[in-house]
Design a protein around this nucleic acid. Sequence first.
DNA 1: TTTTATTTTGCGTTTTTTTGCTATTTTTAG
DNA 2: CTAAAAATAGCAAAAAAACGCAAAATAAAA
Lengths: 249, 249
Amino acid sequence: MLKEERHQTILSEVELHNRILLTDIAEALDVSIDTVRRDVKELDGDHKLRKVHGGAISLGFTTNSTRNNNIYRLEDKSTIAEKALVLLKDGAVIFVDGGTTCLELARLLPAELELTCFTHSLPVAMELLSKPNVTVIMVGGQVSKESQTAIGANAIHNLSEIKVDYSFIGTGYVDSQYGLTEFDWDIVQVKKAVIKCAKKTVLLSISEKLNSQHRYKTCEINAINTMITELDPADKLLNPFREHDIGLL
Amino acid sequence: MLKEERHQTILSEVELHNRILLTDIAEALDVSIDTVRRDVKELDGDHKLRKVHGGAISLGFTTNSTRNNNIYRLEDKSTIAEKALVLLKDGAVIFVDGGTTCLELARLLPAELELTCFTHSLPVAMELLSKPNVTVIMVGGQVSKESQTAIGANAIHNLSEIKVDYSFIGTGYVDSQYGLTEFDWDIVQVKKAVIKCAKKTVLLSISEKLNSQHRYKTCEINAINTMITELDPADKLLNPFREHDIGLL
DNA sequence: TTTTATTTTGCGTTTTTTTGCTATTTTTAG
DNA sequence: CTAAAAATAGCAAAAAAACGCAAAATAAAA
């Protein structure tokens, strides 16, 4: 077994499971734990993964609260992103918000789809770069450490100068009465600008967030043209939203 | 057995199995291990496969990861980044260019250092987010897939509205006569803007790039205030640069 | 064809890399 | 605080690579 092969195996394991245990890898590859330790150390030195006590974790798998807390609903988020894809046609110009659900949308974009994508999210932009037929435009501004998105006056100003067919956005909280709300004031300001620059706004939200609210309001519920959850559109949980002028997917 | 025949056999074996062991090939072709070693070395030189300790692997085999970026001469690049750190003091406002050398600078920033960092590079921005005392400001624009940096008119315009203490930049090619040059026209335009927005410009470049040039010019060599390579500043290779008004580190 | 020059190949030696083992120190968790 | 797990460092055996050199094969020239 060549060293390069082990490296490749280790990397793909890390990418797949987001984390590995050195002991597991050593057993799977049938080499000593020392060898695996040295391999991982080398890969860490090359910034291919991050070595931690007892194992290694994927670089993309940061200890960021947003990502960590929501990883367990990734299935639902993929479902949502899949549904959103039907709205997209070749040549469309869209904005993709930050957050794991929107990131999932970016991931699931088919390679052949031709799009122009604006985003203020670093992870989304990185993901979109791997799509050969997508033109990626990063909206600049001060980057928030928690959300890994550009926010602030500069970002808002940049958004004011563009117009897109669709904005795909996430939200912290959504309620049929109170609309979309957030914990963070600055995030709200940016989301307002995002909605303003779109002909149509599509909300991607896991059902867990339905009927919850927080301090600062992004917009009323009828500012949203389409809401996509992992639920069946006929689900009774969505009933309160049916009264408003909003499409459900 | 002709040499060309062996080369073909080796290549098809590599393509088929994604990897080969030199010992296996030597036995299969009934030639000495040295011959195989030389064959593989030659094929590696022609970029037909990648030679590794004990064997060779297919070029396509390693391209499965987007993080498989240019980690070439990472040691030297770390050395350069370490040197650059001495220029940085708390409260400084800097711009960090794209490229692996500048990315290494971002990585090596001490956690306690308090900075305001502008960048147009997605990887650099991501890296800077992990620094608790660094304010990160992303310069927006269309994102180039190869360089993973924002370029184009929008990026240049955004750069025209800022002023930083230091710009840390990389370059494709640098020559004491011809100055800094690039292969890509759009990259040159952005780099010009980066230099313009800085009080002082610091060039980070591995010595390999010294005395090389390409099509499009970024700036004259004396537009650079400080040049940092992995070499000792007294190295004779740097002599041609000493004539200009440029600091060496 | 014979001779000469060049390239290729194999072999022995030396050097480097890789790997697993042991002993010791460090980290983690109860 | 203590015990288990993990990391580190040093070491030696084995594998592989690098190097020089001479024999063999091939090509070129007389």
